[in-house]
Design a protein around this nucleic acid. Structure first.
Lengths: 125, 125
DNA sequence: CTAACTGTATTATTACTTCTAGTACAGTAT
DNA sequence: ATACTGTACTAGAAGTAATAATACAGTTAG
């Protein structure tokens, strides 16, 4: 499914959260799609099931997936995502990153271009 | 100078790096301005000098400050900052964050508005 | 109902990172 | 010389991440 850097200073479960978010955001994993089970993914990645669970718990609290006992974990459909806390966090991070980008010499034109590049790469299905 | 959350899950030296970057980026700390010494700041914040040094080392490697043995640590003037690695990192983070913002329901207009808000708040002196 | 899946929770242990503490050395300035 | 600076190193305490081994509850296919 993806690769992890076990030697990284960044915790495995955080890497896992980031990668999964990317897959969900870029629609590689579609709404209501079933994710690999905790044990299955642990075996695939040769890491401990508890670590997977920790990542899934985090993804669930951020609203990206939902889990049903006995059934599995599933991608939360984008249209239903309504996480005001996450949105607030993202807004703050954007402001911080904009200031940093400008400080490092990026123009607002460059930044806008990047935005529209990302925006253009989207499609619903 | 600022406040730190010692109880936070985020390491103290990382908080310190973030805060200092903000002060530098927003021109509260100006170019070539002398920063508090490692020992002085450690005393002010009641944390260990080694922790301050770790933060300063990180800020130096990111190009935000420079240190002179026996003299002190100083803010790197914005105009001279030319850190291609940092810029590359920021570009990647922007793309990731844009995708996330859009996924969470922000429009590109909202994002652009945020950008110009940050941009407008700048002034050289 | 049983067997084999699911998520979830708990406890114990190990490994790693962060932070502190103390010391030391080299360069600068008065 | 004295008192500042940054920098480096070792050692130990404290907290976090990751593993390992169980256990329990809900779902589903036979």
């Amino acid at each position: 499914m993806f690769e992890l850097d076990v030697r990284s200073r960044k915790p495995i479960y955080e890497q896992l959260v980031e990668k999964m978010k990317q897959l969900i955001i870029h629609n590689v994993l579609k709404g209501d799609e079933k994710l690999p089970s905790v044990r299955e993914l642990a075996q695939q990645l040769t890491i401990n099931p508890n670590t997977i669970q920790k990542a899934y718990r985090e993804l669930e609290s951020q609203g990206y997936i939902y889990s049903l006992k006995g059934k599995g974990s599933f991608v939360h459909p984008s249209s239903e995502v309504d996480n005001k806390e996450e949105l607030k966090k993202v807004r703050e991070e954007l402001k911080q990153l904009f200031a940093e980008a400008i400080y490092l010499g990026m123009t607002s034109e460059e930044i806008s271009a990047l935005l529209h590049e990302v925006e253009g790469g989207k499609q619903d299905d």
